[in-house]
């Protein structure tokens, strides 16, 4: 697989390590009344879709940035790549 890095252009997927579903960006509020249940779901449960999947890749052998890659899990086709930083900011997270 070739991941089209938003800053560096096309890079081989073997330069990256894989974390998982991009929903992991949305860490629950630890002060919430239901934080225990929310953290259980956050840490352990996954949608695991067959089809379009947004996921976090870390460019470990490159510029060490986190990417959100939108990829089809049936075909391995990569549909979009974004910097995770930008995605998080759009969600109102991070600085």
């Amino acid at each position: 697989m070739i991941i089209n890095h938003p800053l560096l252009g096309p890079r081989d997927a073997s330069e990256f390590t894989y974390l998982g579903d991009a929903a992991l960006i949305e860490r629950p509020d630890w002060q919430s009344e239901t934080a225990q249940d929310e953290f259980h779901d956050y840490v352990y449960l996954r949608d695991n879709p067959a089809g379009t999947h947004r996921e976090l890749w870390f460019h470990e052998q490159g510029d060490r940035s986190w990417l959100v890659v939108t990829r089809n899990t049936m075909t391995h086709e990569i549909l979009a790549t974004e910097l995770a930083r930008d995605v998080a900011r759009k969600m109102g997270r991070g600085k």
């Binding site: 081989d12 073997s14 998982g20 579903d21 899990t73 075909t75 391995h76």
Partner: peptide
């Protein structure tokens, strides 16, 4: 291979 997939094939690395 290390990434989510339902394709019954992997990659070369």
């Amino acid at each position: 291979d290390g990434y989510n997939t339902y394709a019954q094939r992997g990659n070369l690395p």
